[in-house]
Design a protein around this nucleic acid. Structure first.
Lengths: 346, 346
DNA sequence: TTGTAGGCGTTATCAG
DNA sequence: CTGATAACGCCTACAA
């Protein structure tokens, strides 16, 4: 049986002596169709080997039942949790996910957005690339009133809903905690100041210092991509400093960077937390696994993905109040572990 | 400007006094179109704010330029690397990814496959759920000659291409390594025997024992989902055994399970590797980060994703020889670290 | 509750 | 190199 023709609703209609309209309605449980008829249609569909043609359906109805998701990197512990939640929530509502990664590049992000626009996703969820400097590429969506929701790495001046945590507050509390432990020279390992998440964390760090009467020293802020290598390099930098000028604490804007900084320091014989206390960000699995365990900020990735997707779906369904909320701030929480605490006992 | 009509190729055609056919061809750089004309078309499209309609295009051409991917869990370090590679490779060739997760359930996997069939993905990449017992849900793809490629968790009796590593050999070598270190009672933390990856690892473990003249003891094999909790529970089990009967080594089928088993053992005062040596599987980031660092098998996830996608794309492009190869075996490598080695110095 | 008619925007086919 | 025409399979008025 080489390449049999597609079975269409017309074939079902002919088979049952009905009209295509009735079949179309019957197939999607339209209320005005007789229960008997509906059952016959379903059976015939099964029998004839019918499968719905989403292309034709979408062409006509102008809906793809697909949500676009653009993330900086697929290969990230944090993102994989976010995506898992999004997929779960979306699939419950009958939506599928078209997922792309920008690889932290604005150019690729633009292309991705454009593809999704052409593929006519019903909505877009996006976390901005490291170096994105404008969001002109999202304008087509806004013009067509296709809902866009930012998550994690957002764009402040936008009219779209943003879902995130209070990065400022979280960083303030983490820094404050280190200060409370008696630390005075705290190195901050941050990310691009163009991104709200890192700018806010830096601000939280600065204000915590200020409120403790500690002068801000820009040498103690190192901006990077927060990769494993960034952490290792930060440790090398620390070790290069004269002992008197060495930081006595590190606050990393990701657990990856903080943990790898710690590992390199430990290898060099630095005692953690005695010589240098360390705190990270995200509550990645690695933060629990390193030794000593890493003090960190719990960033609920699963909750983030779920919330962002729900917000988008609400806007799609035109629920009352949907889209009115410009920002959704999720709760985060400082998790204090051994890497930052004075030893009280042995 | 409320909801302007879509700009179509007819609008462009009218604007330029051309036929829609020519515009259609010009837009996709068809070779038989005059360069001048092509340029004019591109400009007009820009000017009029045209966007291609993939629905119509797909309806006509019967191609979606979309590849379906079904994974057990999105939320997995290993998978995120695989997916990153797939996305990268696919996007270079102009394909997008529709990604779903089965959450390790055969039912959800069936639904996912069905959705993708209806959405008419051009090809399918799948790694089977923990409890999938048949692949009848993939039959429609085979019937329609839509290429299916298995990766990691494959289905032996299938005609489709499978991409994986030699799990048997990798497990044999890991077990052999532990034996070479003088270990005799090796606990194996494995996964479902229904899945080739875990069945093969178990077989490798057994044969290594056999070749060293050690009797197989089924009490020393614990099957689980290989989660964090599975590792912790395994440790509790170990600690419950009479000291004389305790395993002197653990071989986990994932780094997660091995690392968490190790952490719980360390907490109970067990010395690693002196009392119990440990080896894992995957070369997850955590394997390098735990202390002592975990001996493991490097499973090249990125390479896996890239290879699987390339194989699929070749089948789509009908390259000569595509699909002839039933299995592609990638190289894996035993990485020996501190968690399994006799201390030679201090 | 069911049917008729027409079009969604593109591309394949065949013709020049 | 360009054009006319006819599908692709479904859905939405409107009509019965």
């Amino acid at each position: 049986m080489p390449d049999q023709k597609e079975v269409t609703i017309y074939d079902i209609a002919r088979y049952l002596n009905l009209s295509a309209t009735t079949v179309s309605r019957g197939l999607k449980d339209h209320p005005t169709i007789n229960k008997q008829t509906r059952k016959k249609i379903a059976e015939a569909a099964q029998l004839l080997g019918y499968r719905s043609n989403t292309f034709a359906s979408s062409l006509r109805s102008k809906r793809s039942n697909t949500i676009g998701v653009i993330v900086p990197r697929l290969n990230s512990q944090f993102m994989s949790g976010v995506l898992a939640a999004m997929e779960d929530t979306a699939s419950r509502e009958g939506y599928n996910l078209l997922i792309t990664q920008s690889l932290e590049k604005e150019d690729k992000e633009k292309m991705n957005a454009n593809t999704m626009f052409n593929k006519r996703v019903d909505g877009l969820l996006i976390s901005l690339a490291y170096d994105t400097k404008s969001i002109g590429h999202l304008q087509p969506f806004l013009d067509k009133k296709i809902p866009v929701v930012f998550f994690d790495r957002t764009w402040d001046q936008s009219q779209c809903t943003s879902v995130m945590i209070d990065n400022y507050k979280a960083a303030y509390e983490a820094t404050k905690h280190l200060l409370d432990q008696g630390r005075r020279r705290i190195l901050h390992l941050g990310g691009s100041k163009e991104r709200n998440v890192y700018a806010d964390r830096l601000r939280g760090y600065r204000h915590a210092l200020r409120d403790s009467g500690i002068a801000y020293d820009e040498k103690l802020v190192r901006i990077s991509q927060l990769l494993e290598s960034s952490g290792t390099e930060a440790a090398a930098w620390i070790l290069k400093q004269k002992p008197a000028q060495r930081p006595d604490a590190v606050f990393g804007a990701s657990d990856t960077v903080a943990a790898h900084c710690m590992l390199a320091l430990l290898e060099a014989g630095i005692r953690i937390p005695d010589d240098i206390a360390i705190a990270g960000f995200n509550n990645d699995p690695i933060s629990r696994i390193v030794s000593p365990a890493l003090t960190t900020v719990d960033y609920p990735g699963y909750h983030l993905g779920d919330t962002a997707m729900k917000s988008l779906l609400e806007q799609l369904n035109g629920l009352p109040g949907a889209g009115n909320t410009n920002s959704i701030i999720l709760k985060s929480e400082l998790i204090i572990r051994a890497s930052s605490q004075k030893k009280t006992s042995l």
